[in-house]
Design a protein around this nucleic acid. Structure first.
Lengths: 133, 133
DNA sequence: AAGTTGATCAAGCATCAGGTTGAATAAAGG
DNA sequence: CCTTTATTCAACCTGATGCTTGATCAACTT
């Protein structure tokens, strides 16, 4: 698959899209099946134009897709877009946990660790990085 | 400082915090161990004040914590904060996939599905929701 | 053709997020 | 004490967001 030149922008838009409670509720609704703009706008106290904009944000973030059906444009959830986010988060969660396992192993074998915890932290990694591996 | 009783606000801040490439790179760095503001600011072409603000955003979002150590304030990753985000995303990803499994089962037993796919979608859920279950 | 429904475009406005510079605080080290 | 180091606070600018109202487009319905 093609990795678009700046995957950063994709993540920017996706995380930003979920940083709004209205858009999160739209995602929650779409997880139960596609819906039109009117249907999606119904629970909210804002105009349909505003909801339409929210959907455009979600679409541009790669979290939803749209089809044509007469004059309606049903919105569908795109699970792959969500998965990209959990993939990013989980990567660093796992690196973080791995670091703790390494530290635990070190403390188990080496007796007499009189260094502070934070000091041990700064020297735990072999510094293998560039720009978001 | 009072802890807001609104879980929405916490998700707002957490997703918003990750919607910035600088803050994501800070998270990536912290996954390898704690670091000070100066260390975190070094790879960036912005001022330390700006990085300090970014760290405050991450802290307010519950993604990092800070300790005191002489005049330095090492920043530590808070894995629990990240986990809350994957938990939110995965919930709706799973609901979405479950819906597909239900739809597949329906199409396997019921012969004669002449309705459009999107129409089937709008009637798939029994509408059991309030505000983000 | 005329009207209705569904959704978007466009312009305007209030608020906020990210960045800067400059001054202020806090803890070490002379 | 004064100086250096590490970090934050305060004021300010700029551009983006979220929302509104009013007009426009596209596809049915009659």
């Amino acid at each position: 698959m093609i990795m678009d030149p700046n995957a950063d922008d994709r993540l920017d838009r996706a995380f930003m899209a979920l940083a709004d409670p209205v858009r999160r509720r739209i995602i929650a609704r779409l997880s139960r099946g596609p819906a039109t703009v009117n249907e999606l706008a119904e629970p909210f106290a804002i105009t349909k134009q505003a909801v339409s904009k929210h959907i455009q944000v979600l679409e541009h973030a790669g979290l939803v897709t749209r089809t044509r059906e007469a004059q309606r444009r049903p919105v569908h959830l795109d699970a792959a877009g969500l998965e990209a986010l959990t993939a990013w988060i989980d990567r660093y969660r796992l690196i973080h946990e791995q670091r703790f396992r390494n530290l635990d192993a070190l403390l188990a074998t080496d007796r007499g660790p009189h260094v502070a915890a934070s000091d041990a932290g700064t020297t735990a990694g072999p510094a293998q990085e560039a720009t978001e591996p």
